[in-house]
């Protein structure tokens, strides 16, 4: 599974009613992800990819789109 596929899998577990996460350009701004979802997402991504997501990474730029999440995970994995 690619990073993107895993992220979409985690998001789908949280919001099974959403069909296409990639088409949503404002996951946080648009209200799909609330602060509870963000914390759950951080916990899940930290465990799956064995990364540490510090508080400064919790921002719209990283969490508003699937692409932002993928870029953040790949950057933190490389560190």
């Amino acid at each position: 599974m690619t990073v993107k596929e895993e992220i979409i899998e985690v998001l789908s577990e949280m919001h099974p009613e959403v069909d296409d996460f990639e088409s949503i350009k404002e996951l946080v701004h648009g209200g799909t992800l609330d602060s509870l979802n963000i914390v759950m997402l951080v916990a899940e991504l930290s465990e799956r990819f064995d990364i540490e997501i510090p508080p400064q990474e919790v921002c719209y730029e990283n969490f508003d789109t699937v692409a932002g999440l993928v870029a953040m995970v790949e950057r933190l994995k490389a560190q």
């Binding site: 914390v39 951080v42 510090p54 508080p55």
Partner: peptide, 18 residues
């Protein structure tokens, strides 16, 4: 939310608690 909730909820301690 930004300076207490997130730093605390995603801290190593909280994630380990989970």
């Amino acid at each position: 939310k930004d300076y207490i909730f997130y730093p605390l909820s995603i801290s190593k301690f909280s994630l380990a608690l989970g």
